[in-house]
Design a protein around this nucleic acid. Structure first.
Lengths: 365, 365
DNA sequence: CATCCGTGTGAAAACGTTTCCACACGTCTG
DNA sequence: CAGACGTGTGGAAACGTTTTCACACGGATG
């Protein structure tokens, strides 16, 4: 039944020799391509089975220039949103025989250029990308020049590249409207790596846009360092400086939960003293003591759509840009009206405070 | 500067022709292997630059049978623990020029066999695996027979295969001891996909072992279906049936947080009415209203260690099994002594209730 | 009986590399 | 000056496939 551990790789030549036929015939039988006699089929199949033969994808790729591999680049798999998206890509691909070659950039623009090059050299037939700066990336241009099918994830449409995304701008507007409806006026937008993420930026601009449309003053923009995001104490002192703030929109759920913690540290309460809304819709948000209000998205669906688009592209269909995937505002107890005394007060310090002074304050503190 | 979009792939032949030299020379220059004249170097390098040449990894792999690719199989990237581990593998590998080909099994033993075969066919030079059933997997045997370097993640040592793991058994014992020290007697162990995860099983046996050693009755074993895990209401009714239970050990943090939610749903409090300890040490646990007590592990470190071991193996060092990676009990407010009236009471129903009856109850409910 | 066709077959080219080998130069040694 | 040696060099083989091409064989058609 099982076979001796032949350290040496078995090739189709071995099969052909054992079946006493030409390589071409063996190939035809094993691939069910081209005509073969019943007798030849029998002999080849037996030989292949006995030898435990299986094709070398490398030889095959070289000859046919089809590697059956697609490349995927995300900033980091440590971020569950990206990990889920990759899982989605994986699922869509696994039914088709394609394999996934992955790379992560760690939010470094240089690194993701380099990664794309390496993937290209490996002969991937297509690329699913979430980049740091897709607007101008030399590697991306190289890929397009080579005619490699491309599909983006999470990015808003750029340059005619197909992308699977939710409409960050619209989603953020919805949050602003909810704040306005409840009577909030002094709001803030909280982001990590703001400058290196077009997703965060689009959420911010959408948020600002709708604030204006609703007659609210501009939101304060708070850009956190990693240290601040991971240390609720730092976040707490930072929040303390935002006088009169009643509602905060965090650009992901993890930050939103950190804000809740920071508020508790200051002896205040969510939502009475501060309303919080997150983004992403992670499952744990539901299970919290005060369930998190957030924008639900489905990263796995993004991955699946991106993969499907890529497959279509590879097959030559030139598919139009898909509409954005739906998002859903999930109500949660972290969002409520502000305390009455905070309604309609535009007295006191101007709003929003300048971001610059905030940062300076923080560095001093 | 940039070049026309030559749809056609540029090979080393083109470079050689343009530099007016043989292929061998071009190869030697570009690889800095073997001797070359200054003049040849100049011409080849210029030609390569002008043509925008880069090597085809496929051609290279075929010739040298070094694919510079390693395969990685995990149950699912939707589980942040595995995703982080893969990120760790990635990091360790990226410094070495290896690329990662990934596959996920969705907790299906058949699928992970198939995936290993595909990876093998793609010519991976090594495999980093977290499997459903590593004890006996045909594909795994094939890999060993072929002499492909293997390294496992999360599994306890089996069969002489190197593995990067934390000592699940020991970690679980520590939890039992903490329970005992605080005066808990009636405990339970909560797991998802218990039967298909040796990790959960080892935690359970360790937990049982230490319970006995501390003179506690055996813990109740609660094996959840996906539906129960995701629906706090179901979990709540389930908990209601466990009379006298004062402490529960969940085999991951997500379950532990779900338990907290379920307890709240029943109008009870953690830790006063039920102590909860999780496993994994996810960051969010710290930020909860009642911070989660848990066993901290470092999945990325597991990934890095597994990758490093594999690299060593590939380079022919036969490295001994590494000791388990350290875990750390993280104290948290979800763990406290039981209410006094529950101390030392072995009256009432026998403990543990039979798992079977529990399940039946649930199906009826 | 000469042709034509369809079926099954195997040799060989091609895919892009690396590396072995042989060879053509010089320069040094005896 | 004959030989040995070192340095660059390019042709060609090899890696494992797929596919083109030519051919051989038999049966049907003129």
């Amino acid at each position: 039944m099982t076979h001796v551990s032949s350290r040496q790789k078995i090739t189709i030549k071995d099969v052909a020799r054992k079946a006493d036929c030409g390589i071409a015939t063996a190939s035809r039988v094993l691939n069910r391509s081209g005509p073969t006699s019943a007798e030849a089929r029998r002999r080849v199949e037996e030989a292949a089975r006995e030898l435990g033969f299986s094709f070398s994808a490398i030889g095959r790729a070289l000859q046919s220039s089809r590697s059956m591999t697609i490349g995927c680049l995300v900033p980091s798999l440590a971020n569950p949103v990206f990990a889920e998206a990759v899982q989605g890509v994986q699922e869509a691909l696994s039914k088709t025989g394609y394999q996934l070659l992955i790379a992560s950039s760690n939010y470094d623009g240089e690194a993701d250029c380099a990664a794309i090059s390496t993937l290209l050299d490996k002969g991937v037939e297509g690329l699913v990308l979430t980049m740091v700066a897709p607007e101008r990336s030399a590697a991306l241009d190289r890929a397009r020049a080579r005619g490699i099918p491309l599909s983006l994830m999470f990015h808003d449409p750029i340059d005619g590249l197909p992308t699977a995304h939710v409409d960050n701008f619209e989603a953020a507007r919805e949050v602003a409207r909810r704040f306005a409806d409840l009577g909030h006026r002094r709001t803030a937008f909280l982001a990590l790596r703001f400058s290196s993420s077009d997703r965060s930026r689009n959420r911010y601009t959408g948020f600002c846009d709708a604030c204006r449309a609703c007659g609210l003053p501009d939101p304060a923009l708070i850009e956190l360092s990693e240290a601040e995001a991971n240390t609720p104490e730092l976040l707490a002192t930072l929040l303390g400086k935002l006088d009169g703030l009643t509602a905060i929109f965090a650009s992901n759920d993890f930050l939103a939960i950190a804000v809740q913690k920071a508020v508790r540290l200051r002896g205040k309460k969510v939502p009475q003293d501060l309303s919080v809304v997150g983004f992403d819709g992670i499952e744990i948000g539901r299970l919290l003591d005060v369930p998190l209000a957030t924008i639900e998205t489905a990263p796995d669906a993004i991955g699946r759509q991106a993969a499907q688009t890529l497959l279509d592209l590879i097959q030559g269909k030139d598919c139009a840009q898909q509409p954005p995937l739906p998002f859903n505002f999930r109500a949660g107890a972290t969002l409520a009206p502000p305390r009455p005394e905070f309604r309609d007060d535009d007295q006191g310090a101007t709003w929003p405070p300048s971001v610059h002074s905030l940062e300076t304050d923080l560095k001093q503190g």
